Amino acid sequence: MTDARGLKGETIYVSTLPGVEPALEAEARERGLSFRRAEGGIECEGPPGLHQTANLHLRTASRVLLRLGTFMAPTADALVQGLQALPMADVWDGKVPLRLSVTLHRSVAPGPAVVLESASVAWDPCEVTVAGHLDEEGGGPELTLLVRGEGERWTVSVDTSGAPLYQRGYRQEVGRAPLRETLASGILRLAGYAGDVPLVDPMCGSGTFLVEGAWLSQRRPPGLLRTFAFQSFPSFDQAVWARRRAEAEGEALAEPRAPMRGYDLNAGALGTARRNARRAGVTLTLERHDLRTLKAPPDAPGLVVANPPYGKRVGEAEDLPDLYRALGATLNGAFREWRKALIVPEEPKLVATLGLKGARQLPVKNGGLRCLLVLAGPS
C-alpha cells in the first residue's frame, strides 16, 4: 500500500497476552489505527513508521512484527527460494546475525515440519537454519525473521521490537510474584480505568500496577525508556525517530491526573516499588499497612486493583482462603463504593471466598498460569 505522498505503507502484526486482546483493540482504536483481528493480536495497515508508533505507544502489545511478504511454497526448496527473494534491504544489511524462526499453523498436518527441519537458507555472510518454534522470550542484537506456514502459504515478518515489550526499562527489581507490565496495563484497561480517578493497590509488591496506572494517567507512552530492534535497521532514520519521540513526550502530562496509592505489609517490597517508581519518573504514595485494617483514602471512589498470592509457594496454599476472605472483607467494607479488579488463580472456591457480588470473570494467563480477572462494581 502507498500513502498520500506516494510512499509505500506498512502492514504490521501486533501480538498480546491471552485474554488481553480486547484491551489491545481498544488501544489501537483510540490511536486511530486501521486494524483487523488476528489470532493472538491484531493486524494493522498504515504509513511508513507504523511499526515505530506501535512499539512506542501500545501498552498492551507484546511484540510488533513488520510483514515482509507472503508467498506459496509447496516444498522446502520453494520455501528457500521464497525466503531468498524477500525484500530485505530496508531491514538487514548483512552485518548483524540473522535468526529464522518457523511456526506451522496448528491446523496443518505435522508432515511438512519433518521436511522443514532439515531446510536451510544461506545469506552471505551467515547461514540461517529453519527452527521449530519461536521463543517468545527471545530477542537480542540479532535480526529475527518469523515465518508462519498455513498449508502451502507462507507469511514472513521481521521482529521490530527486540526485547519483549513488557520490558519497559523501569522495573529492574521485582517482588515475589512479578506481573508483566503489559498484563498490568491490560488489566487496568479491561477494568475501564482511564487514569482520571484514584488507583489503589492494597498488595502492591514492586508497584507495577501503580506505575502503569500513573503512566496511563499521564498519557506517557510506555516505550520512552527503552530501545527497539528497528533502530538497527538500515532504513532507520534517527532524526525522524527523534521527532516521533519528542512528539510523544510533548503529549504526556507532568503528573498523573489522579493519586496512585500502594500498600503492602512487606517493607522490602515497598522499597522495591519506590525505586521502580523513581526510575519510571512517577510519584506514588506508598505505605506499609495490613490489608485487613486498610481504610479507603479520602478521595472520590476510584479503582482497587490487586494481584494476590496464588499459593504456588511452599506453605502458602493453606493460608489462601483466610487471605482471600480478608481481602474480600476489605473490598466489601472500606472500599465498597470503589470498583475492583483482581487477577486470581482459576479456582472457583477462592473466587467465591472473595464474596464480590455480581462480579464478572474473564480468563487470562499470568506467566503461563490459567487465571481469572475478577471485575466488580461498587458493593
Rank of each mutant, 00 (worst) to 15 (best):
T16R: 03
T16D: 02
L24V: 12
E30D: 13
R36P: 00
R37L: 03
R37A: 14
E43H: 01
C44Q: 06
C44Y: 03
E45Y: 08
Q52T: 09
L58M: 11
R59I: 07
T75I: 04
A78E: 15
V80E: 11
G82M: 08
A85V: 10
V91D: 00
D93G: 04
P97V: 05
L98I: 02
L100W: 09
H105R: 13
R106K: 15
V108F: 01
P110T: 05
S120R: 05
V128G: 08
A131V: 14
L134A: 12
G138T: 13
V147N: 02
E152N: 11
S157A: 08
A163R: 13
R171Q: 08
P178E: 00
R180W: 02
T182V: 07
L183A: 02
G186V: 09
L188P: 05
R189M: 14
V197Q: 14
P198H: 08
D201R: 07
P202W: 00
P202S: 08
C204D: 01
S206R: 02
F209M: 11
L216V: 12
S217N: 09
Q218R: 15
Q218T: 00
R219W: 08
R219Y: 04
R219M: 07
G223W: 09
A229C: 06
Q231T: 12
A242V: 05
R243G: 13
R244D: 09
E247N: 06
A248C: 05
L253I: 01
A254E: 15
R261F: 11
D264L: 11
N266L: 05
G268K: 10
A273N: 08
R279N: 14
A280V: 09
V282N: 06
T283G: 13
L284C: 12
E287T: 08
H289R: 15
D290H: 01
T293R: 13
P297V: 05
A300M: 13
V304K: 14
A306W: 04
P308G: 06
Y310K: 09
Y310F: 14
K312M: 07
R313F: 05
R313W: 02
R313E: 01
D319E: 14
R325S: 12
A329R: 14
A329Y: 00
L331F: 01
G333K: 12
A334M: 03
K340Q: 13
L342C: 12
V344R: 07
L350I: 03
V351C: 00
L356I: 00
G358L: 03
A359I: 06
Q361I: 04
K365S: 12
K365H: 12
G368A: 11
L373E: 09
L375S: 07
